[in-house]
């Protein structure tokens, strides 16, 4: 990791000002009944940028990233992903979903399918890839996340960390331009968190645009280009890891950091 060019390094020290906009959110709001989950959220995420979203539970972080691939529907404002606006048009939704990979807190692997079939399912049925080709790609991806020997097992036979790495491989199989991570390590035993974070770091280094909801401060400090801090459905503060963790501006950020650090 001694490269100096922007293509292969991450963190706030690189210059992304010339990069294209990948995700644009403008005044996005969402309510669950009377409860306002998102309150005028506006942010732009550049190509190859790694953004970590922090915030106390119930602050709307998960709701926000789930809106970006339309698992939740925003009610006001606009979201544009790689130039495609998310509307009620089914074709747009399908296009966005095939460009955005998502990793869930609870892995959500398909328990009735072998690991390899979990990974090849979408390429075969969505991308219409030949099965042989999809399997070769799946083996390559499983090697990338470090578990090629588990290809013929079922998800129920794997450990939590291995399952989450399969889930990452499954998302990568669609060759997405953006990866969303919704608390990927929260359901894992402590000794398995590292293996998942290592895969995510490698992914960030390879230039993937990533949006990560997590409580892993170490990961955020090391990999993130920007930190977005949310509370009560609003974006409270946006900053580089250095400034956010050492010198936060807002009172709520200070309170939050004092509780988790």
């Amino acid at each position: 990791m001694n490269e100096t060019n922007n293509e292969t390094s991450t963190g706030s020290n690189r210059d992304l000002s010339n990069a294209a906009d990948m995700i644009v959110c403008e005044n996005v709001s969402k309510w669950y009944g009377d409860f306002q989950a998102l309150d005028e959220v506006s942010a732009t995420i550049k190509e190859q940028e790694v953004v970590v979203v922090l915030g106390p539970s119930g602050s709307g972080k998960s709701t926000w990233i789930r809106c970006i691939n339309r698992l939740e529907q925003h009610q006001e404002g606009r979201i544009e992903v790689d130039g495609i606006e998310l509307t009620n048009d089914l074709r747009n939704i399908e296009k966005v979903r095939s460009e955005v990979g998502m990793v869930f807190q609870q892995f959500n692997l398909f328990p009735h399918l072998k690991v390899i079939d979990n990974v090849t399912l979408a390429p075969i049925w969505v991308r219409k890839k030949p099965k042989v080709e999809a399997q070769e790609q799946a083996i390559a991806l499983l090697e990338r996340v470090g578990i090629p020997e588990q290809a013929d097992k079922y998800p129920g036979q794997l450990s939590g960390g291995q399952q989450q790495r399969v889930a990452i491989a499954r998302a990568l199989a669609m060759e997405p331009r953006i990866m969303l991570f919704d608390e990927p390590t929260s359901a894992l035993d402590p000794e398995m968190i590292k293996e998942v974070l290592d895969v995510m770091k490698e992914l960030a280094l390879s230039g993937m645009t990533m949006m990560v909801v997590t409580h892993e401060v170490g990961f955020a400090k090391e990999v993130a280009d920007r930190i977005i801090f949310m509370d009560e459905g609003q974006i409270v503060e946006i900053g580089t890891p250095e400034t956010f963790f050492t010198d936060p501006v807002e009172e709520r950020s200070k309170l939050f950091l004092s509780q988790i650090l």
Partner: peptide, 22 residues
Amino acid sequence: PKGQIEAANAVGLKRSHALRHI
């Protein structure tokens, strides 16, 4: 589980394919 349907949606499967395979 709802997560299964969400995962199927997230990888871009169409509704008919999600129904049949998941």
